[in-house]
């Protein structure tokens, strides 16, 4: 490149920038992610236990808990709270199922301005879509091998 003035190669520059850049406050971030993520899980467990107490089967109770958490994520997003939570909690609000729901609602809200079908409808899964694609694909591949192995045993 015609950049003879700077006596630095690209690699030198990238290393220099990396050294100079302020690092994320990892311990604070970790603590917050642990706390918020853990609390979402406790909420999920509490909901499961409540429905089990009312004589629902364990699996059903856990599914209802999931649905409620998905609703909570969507609700908090729609009242502009989840984005603020995410600023502090990081992965603590991305990794739980509420974060999955947040990524759907956030994109849907954003693209509403381009219409209900090609805007909201088409873009809803812009961030969350890959999760479903890779989740289902991997489960089918794993299932196929399980079925194959089962044939021989």
């Amino acid at each position: 490149m015609d950049f003879e003035k700077l006596s630095m190669t690209n690699e030198d520059y990238i290393n220099y920038v990396q050294q100079k850049s302020k690092k994320s406050p990892i311990f604070k971030n970790l603590a917050l992610a642990f706390l918020v993520g853990g609390l979402f899980c406790i909420l999920g467990q509490a909901l499961t236990d409540i429905f089990e107490y009312f004589n629902y089967e364990k699996k059903v109770a856990s599914t209802i808990a999931t649905i409620i958490l998905v609703f909570l994520g969507a609700f908090l997003t729609s009242i502009n709270v989840y984005s603020k939570l995410g600023k502090y909690a990081g992965a603590g609000s991305i990794v739980p199922i509420t974060g999955f729901s947040n990524s759907i609602v956030a994109t849907a809200i954003e693209y509403k301005s381009e219409g209900y079908i090609l805007g909201l409808g088409a873009n809803m899964f812009k961030v969350a879509g890959p999760v479903i694609v890779y989740g289902i694909t991997s489960s089918v591949v794993i299932g196929f091998f399980y079925w194959l192995i089962k044939l021989f045993i």
């Binding site: 970790l30 642990f34 990794v95």
Partner: peptide, 24 residues
């Protein structure tokens, strides 16, 4: 739950993976 989310946080801070990639 906390440990799983913390692993995600390490990925965010150390690898610059975007949230969509973290979820995948």
């Amino acid at each position: 739950g906390g440990v799983i989310c913390s692993i995600g946080q390490i990925l965010i801070d150390r690898t610059k993976l975007t949230p969509a990639r973290i979820m995948v």
